[in-house]
């Protein structure tokens, strides 16, 4: 498979390494022409406002929405989760997303950087170490969305931090920072394999 990684800002290099380490071709996507060459897309961690701003300026929002509507598999981590949400709370005024997952995501839900943390969690029945950096959580989802992992917030309640709707996958945490390829492999082997003929 040809995996594209949206390379406008953020830790796209780490996602490219994860795709290559999983045995796939990986290329950066900064323009609509580059998007049309890829089978699946990863939206990296970074600043969601910056990425959305650049996506708008360089005419990527409509083409990405179109590919999502056509069923292209997309995985977003952290900022990428925000960009896949149909609705966001605590965003910057007028902040746009690509959307696709019928959920509301709260930005910086776990707090500021001093509250950033790492924690063990169960994802797809496997225990893994997850790194949360100024991370969002999923505030509410429709019945179309499958919850793959959750974590307890400072409010004492459990909040979804990994979700899937069809060919779209999103996590609040950053598997690309740990060298653990299991979340990427889940995306390539379970999500993409079913969606790409």
């Amino acid at each position: 498979m040809k995996i594209g990684v949206l390379a406008l800002q953020g830790d796209f290099r780490e996602h490219i390494q994860a795709a290559k380490a999983s045995g796939h071709a990986a290329l950066t996507v900064r323009r609509p022409e580059e998007l049309s060459e890829v089978d699946a897309l990863i939206l990296p961690g970074g600043e969601s406002t910056t990425i959305a701003q650049l996506a708008k300026t360089f005419d990527l929002i409509a083409p990405i929405r179109k590919r999502i509507a056509e069923g292209m598999p997309v995985y977003g981590s952290c900022a990428g989760m925000i960009l896949l949400a149909d609705r966001i709370v605590d965003g910057a005024a007028g902040q746009e997303t690509f959307g696709g997952i019928d959920m509301t995501v709260r930005r910086n839900a776990f707090g500021r950087q001093v509250d950033s943390f790492e924690s063990d969690l169960t994802f797809n029945q496997e225990l893994l170490r997850a790194v949360f950096i100024r991370a969002p959580w999923v505030e509410e989802v429709s019945q179309k969305v499958e919850i793959l992992a959750d974590v307890q917030g400072s409010d004492g309640k459990g909040h979804p931090v990994a979700v899937r709707q069809g060919s779209l996958l999103a996590t609040s945490f950053h598997p690309e920072l740990t060298g653990d390829l299991r979340v990427h492999r889940y995306f390539f082997d379970q999500v993409c394999a079913g969606a790409i003929k």
Binding site: A7, L8, Q9, G10, D11, F12, R13, E14, G45, G46, E47, T50, C78, A79, Q113, V114, D115, S116, F117, E118, S119, V131, F132, I133, R134, H174, L177, T178
Partner: peptide, 18 residues
């Protein structure tokens, strides 16, 4: 765990290209 080296260095990773 909060304030680990991974969380601190990881924050800077998110600023890259910016």
């Amino acid at each position: 765990a909060v304030g680990t080296a991974r969380v601190k260095r990881g924050m800077a990773e998110m600023l890259k290209g910016g």
